[in-house]
């Protein structure tokens, strides 16, 4: 009986093993066609143009740098939106709002995380991108119809609850005595929050930001729909950029023979994504856990 119960846990382990094995195995095959140095350091990504005719099944250049910068650019924009909005929302909810407001607003904010990301992608295409294009035209800037900014902004909206929920938990966990100590010395509430409560809650808040970052890096649909396919190596948020996840989707949708460098490249990108998000999550969980122990 107990052994039967163990199968559930076994599946959970097998999933991880399966992910790691399949990604590593395919990446290994990829690296036999494309050298690691090219993958990591070549600033050009163009899998479609065949320039390496000497090798069987190989085609194009597979430098992941433009994808990595694109991913980071969009994630940075997302965090630039989500961090202040999420943090300030959490501060208001934890420190100013009465319990009634809190009971309504907190789940409302969390709705943002419950909306499927494909919906955000459509929202970006339908509303945000045209808005940016028109706004840019009005300001004399040319904003491409698929831009890092549009994708990043919408992704930022999506990640607000990841920041606000963890920050809220962290703020609430700060002992009341610290807040009262500051207020009793004649702090205004904001002084108490900024100088005492936030520093005390900083580990928890940081953990939330890391989770949001990991979420943004691994997000697929928003960028597939709003960021574009052009592997531009740029930090200009008004231009189209592409990301790791977009390229995975592009390389693997449509019919493809399974052993071509293109399909194998998708697995190498997947492994990269897996490792980066895993590291972020482990750090975030570690920080949050340590912090909880501190005040438990």
């Amino acid at each position: 009986m107990v052994a039967a119960l163990f199968t559930g846990s076994l599946v959970a382990i097998l999933v991880t093993v399966g992910i790691v094995l399949s990604l590593v195995f395919e990446t290994f095959r990829f690296l036999q066609i494309v050298p690691l140095t090219e993958f990591l350091f070549n600033p050009q990504w163009s899998p479609q143009t065949a320039i390496r005719t000497d090798q069987v099944g190989a085609s194009g250049v597979f430098g992941a740098i433009p994808l990595i910068t694109g991913t980071l650019l969009i994630s940075a924009i997302a965090l630039a939106v989500a961090a202040p909005i999420g943090l300030f929302s959490a501060i208001y909810l934890a420190e100013y709002a009465n319990s009634k407001t809190r009971a309504v607003v907190k789940p409302t904010l969390e709705l943002l995380a419950g909306i499927p990301t494909v919906v955000y992608g459509f929202f970006a295409v339908l509303i945000i991108a045209p808005l940016l294009r028109d706004g840019g035209a009005w300001a004399g800037l040319s904003v491409s119809s698929e831009s890092a900014l549009a994708a990043g902004l919408v992704m930022g909206i999506m990640t607000i609850p990841f920041v606000s929920s963890t920050a809220d938990d962290a703020l609430i966990a700060v002992p009341l005595s610290l807040k009262e100590g500051a207020l009793a010395l004649g702090s205004t509430r904001s002084e108490a929050i900024r100088q005492i409560i936030i520093p005390a809650a900083l580990p928890g808040i940081t953990g939330g930001l890391l989770l949001a970052a990991s979420r943004a890096i691994g997000e697929t649909m928003i960028v597939v729909m709003a960021a574009g396919l052009a592997a531009n190596l740029t930090l200009n948020p008004l231009e189209a950029v592409t990301t790791v996840t977009v390229q995975i989707v592009t390389l693997l949708t449509g019919d493809q023979e399974f052993d071509s460098a293109k399909t194998l490249a998708a697995f190498a990108l997947g492994l990269l994504l897996f490792i980066v998000t895993l590291i972020l999550n482990v750090i975030a969980q570690h920080i949050v856990k340590k912090y909880r122990e501190q005040y438990d």
Binding site: V15, T16, I19, I217, G218, T220, G270, L273, T277, N281
Partner: peptide, 14 residues
């Protein structure tokens, strides 16, 4: 815990 935070596209690759 970590599996819960793996990007969904990675499950697709799996």
């Amino acid at each position: 815990n970590n599996l819960a935070a793996v990007p969904s596209i990675v499950f697709g690759l799996l």
